[in-house]
Amino acid sequence: MSEETSWGPCVSCKWWQVEPDASVAYQTVGQCIDESLQPYTLRISGNGGCNRYIEGEPARAAGASEMPPVAEPSR
């Protein structure tokens, strides 16, 4: 699958960014740092998902779970 057509959950996506000490779980709230979605300051739980999914470890940065997220993308 190409990046444009693959779908997956945020909990296992490299574009999902969570707090440094947060557990990686479906209930955890973080932010999406996919370059094309950054302008939207998207705050989403690990249970979310989309077609920008790329399997990997979530990034970590302080402020990723705030409303709105204030963390700079770490990738």
Rank of each mutant, 00 (worst) to 15 (best):
M1V: 11
M1H: 13
M1F: 10
S2T: 04
S2E: 08
E3T: 12
E4H: 15
T5S: 15
T5K: 09
T5C: 14
S6M: 07
S6V: 15
W7R: 06
G8T: 10
G8N: 13
G8H: 03
G8P: 15
G8V: 02
G8K: 07
P9I: 13
P9A: 05
P9M: 04
P9W: 14
C10I: 12
V11S: 02
V11P: 00
V11L: 10
S12L: 12
C13F: 06
C13R: 03
K14Y: 13
W15D: 00
W15R: 01
W15T: 00
W16P: 00
Q17L: 02
Q17V: 02
Q17I: 05
V18R: 01
E19M: 11
P20T: 15
P20D: 01
P20E: 10
P20F: 06
P20G: 03
P20S: 12
D21C: 06
D21I: 08
A22S: 04
A22P: 02
S23L: 03
A25P: 01
Q27V: 09
T28I: 09
V29H: 06
V29S: 04
G30E: 04
Q31T: 05
Q31R: 13
I33H: 02
I33Y: 14
D34V: 12
D34K: 10
D34T: 06
E35Y: 09
E35C: 02
E35T: 10
S36P: 11
S36E: 14
S36R: 08
S36N: 09
L37K: 05
L37M: 04
L37Y: 12
Q38S: 03
P39N: 05
P39F: 13
Y40D: 12
Y40R: 12
T41N: 09
T41P: 05
T41E: 10
T41K: 14
R43Y: 04
R43C: 14
R43M: 02
I44P: 00
I44H: 12
G46N: 01
G46V: 10
N47W: 08
N47L: 05
N47D: 06
N47Q: 08
N47K: 12
G48N: 10
G48K: 13
G48C: 11
G49N: 08
G49K: 03
C50W: 11
C50Q: 08
C50A: 10
N51Y: 11
R52W: 14
R52T: 15
Y53N: 00
Y53V: 00
I54E: 09
I54D: 14
I54A: 05
E55G: 12
E55A: 12
E55N: 13
G56A: 06
G56C: 10
A59Y: 08
R60K: 10
R60M: 07
A61L: 04
A62Y: 11
A62W: 05
G63I: 05
G63E: 01
A64S: 09
A64L: 01
A64K: 04
S65F: 03
P68M: 04
P69E: 01
P69Y: 11
P69A: 14
V70Q: 15
V70H: 08
A71S: 07
E72A: 14
E72F: 03
P73W: 15
P73M: 04
S74T: 12
S74H: 15
S74F: 11
S74R: 14
R75Y: 09
